[in-house]
Design a protein around this nucleic acid. Structure first.
Ligand SMILES: [Mn+2]
Ligand SMILES: [Mn+2]
Ligand SMILES: [Zn+2]
Ligand SMILES: [Zn+2]
Lengths: 154, 154
DNA sequence: ACTTTAATTGAAAATGATTATCATTAACAA
DNA sequence: TTGTTAATGATAATCATTTTCAATTAAAGT
């Protein structure tokens, strides 16, 4: 649990330790980068940002750490169709929480939106219920993206 | 326009010629494979199926043809998270039309469903309207997947 | 603080899907 | 039938991500 004034240990310390993982410099640095942006960074984006402060940290470790964070649910991994995975903090003070994406097919811009989540959640609930019965399928997650052209591209 | 009794030229001939593309043996073979399955085939899957009948057709041509078919809207390309693209006929007599997917994270099985499309379309309409106004974003397409465990995996 | 020990790291090489090159082939309009 | 040019296929190249493995280090115990 992080301090309210932001001076205490970052919120993720507990999560990491709780899962039995060591709190290392690379992991700290990577989580720092993720918690200080609203963008959807690629592994290399994160590597470059981390590299400015800790030139010794390698790309391999970035990939490994991201996989760890995805497994523990601290980070979401997305594919927006440009051939590289994108990562985004899934929780914590800075994160916007569950949301869906608008993907501009013109310039690649990604827009987070939550405006219609309520109705979507309602639909998802119905869908989950129905599909669960019909296909005996246990839904644990969903992926919703709208593709089109952003304001600058149309 | 294909013959009603199925003896005429396949339905895609018109589409190909109409777009100014040549009707070649590889293209015919690839479309044949796609129209005779309900599965979500990878490029290599398609290559192997085509290879049984036409061993001379190469994987490169399969990739090129698939890209062409995706561009012309005859084929949909999906990413179900296993590191290889999947392809599915988007129209024609055999196709099931627009649908969404259930992705089993246990065994990788893909289930097509159309049951809730109507309600989803209604939601999409609302969403499109709202987001179009708020973000000046023109939605042309959407991607909806539910992830979870299929009947055999839970 | 010092030791111990297994988890973690980083450089380098490997992997695997997809794409680019380029000489050869073949569709099809004339 | 012929000429033009799109299309093909073998090969090499790309590029994101993984694997390997020896060296490092977090952190628990002393
Ligand atoms: Mn987002
Ligand atoms: Mn499908
Ligand atoms: Zn744009
Ligand atoms: Zn399954």
């Amino acid at each position: 649990m992080p301090w309210r004034d932001g001076t205490g240990p970052p919120w993720w310390h507990g999560k990491m330790k709780g899962c039995g993982y060591r709190l290392t410099v690379p992991r700290h640095a990577i989580l720092d980068v993720l918690s200080q942006t609203k963008e959807h960074l690629s592994a290399e984006d994160i590597y470059l940002a981390v590299h400015k402060v800790y030139p010794a940290i390698g790309l391999t470790t970035v990939y490994r750490t991201l996989e760890l964070l995805v497994q523990t649910g601290m980070v979401f991994k997305f594919d927006f169709g440009d051939g590289r995975a994108r990562y985004e903090l899934s929780e914590g003070p800075q994160s916007i929480g569950h949301h869906h994406h608008l993907v501009c097919t013109g310039c690649g811009r990604i827009i987070d939106y939550t405006d219609f989540i309520d109705e979507e959640i309602e639909l998802l609930r119905k869908t989950e219920k129905g599909l669960s019965k019909k296909y005996n399928f246990k839904i644990t997650n969903h992926l919703i993206q709208f593709h089109g052209l952003c304001g600058k591209c149309n």
